[in-house]
Amino acid sequence: MSKRDAVFPPDRHALYEAHGYSPAIRSGEFLFVSGQVGSRPDGSAEPDFAAQVRRAFANLEAVLAAGGCSFDDIVDVMTFHTDPENQLPAVMEAKNRVFPQSPYPSWTAIGVTWLAGFDFEIKVVARIPAS
């Protein structure tokens, strides 16, 4: 079995250590990014939902960069929402900023009842660009 090639951003937040997971795993030409939430450096949630979504995207961007990727390299997105119907406008605003035009990545949105104190999470798979 091959060893996991873990990827961490320079300013890793407290949740990685507290819950024992890697922000991303590099495997072949793909980067598998763990669900990113709107956590502050100490692991606490942004209280305002729109700010939490923006911070989740910023945390995702930092992990992608650490793995040699950008939003343009994302091929698959999965998001988790505690109140999808009411949260959609804030999520779409952030989504449209990072994916302003087609072709868009594939996207699956899932309504959930619990996200460990958060209200939004985004998980992606990106293709690592050839160097």
Rank of each mutant, 00 (worst) to 15 (best):
Y21V: 00
Y21S: 01
Y21P: 00
Y21K: 01
S22H: 12
S22E: 13
P23N: 03
A24E: 06
A24H: 01
I25T: 13
I25P: 05
R26D: 05
R26S: 08
R26I: 13
R26M: 07
R26H: 14
R26Y: 08
G28N: 05
E29A: 15
E29I: 15
E29C: 11
E29F: 09
F30S: 14
F30V: 13
F30K: 10
F30A: 13
F30M: 15
F30Q: 14
L31T: 02
L31F: 03
F32R: 05
F32Q: 08
V33F: 01
V33I: 07
V33A: 00
V33E: 02
V33R: 00
S34I: 00
S34H: 05
G35W: 01
G35Q: 08
G35T: 07
Q36M: 06
Q36W: 01
Q36K: 02
V37A: 07
G38L: 11
G38A: 11
S39A: 15
R40I: 06
R40N: 15
D42G: 02
D42P: 04
G43A: 12
G43T: 10
S44M: 12
S44V: 07
A45W: 06
E46T: 04
E46Q: 15
P47N: 07
D48S: 06
D48Q: 11
D48W: 09
D48P: 03
F49A: 10
F49N: 12
F49C: 11
F49G: 09
F49H: 14
A50H: 09
A50R: 07
A51N: 12
A51G: 15
V53Y: 11
V53S: 05
V53Q: 09
R55C: 07
F57T: 01
F57D: 02
F57C: 00
F57R: 00
F57A: 02
A58K: 03
A58Q: 13
N59I: 05
L60T: 02
L60N: 00
L60I: 04
L60V: 04
E61A: 15
E61N: 13
A62R: 03
V63P: 04
V63G: 02
L64N: 08
A65Q: 14
A65E: 13
A65P: 06
A65L: 14
A66D: 04
A66H: 00
A66K: 01
G67R: 00
G68Y: 11
G68K: 06
G68E: 10
G68V: 13
G68S: 08
G68A: 10
G68F: 13
S70L: 13
F71H: 03
F71C: 05
F71N: 03
D72V: 11
D73R: 02
D73S: 12
I74D: 06
V75T: 15
V75M: 10
V75S: 09
D76Y: 08
V77Y: 03
V77A: 05
M78C: 13
M78K: 08
M78H: 06
T79C: 14
F80H: 07
F80I: 05
H81R: 02
H81F: 12
H81A: 07
H81M: 11
H81L: 11
T82C: 12
D83I: 07
D83W: 07
D83A: 15
D83L: 12
D83Y: 06
P84V: 15
P84T: 15
P84R: 09
P84K: 08
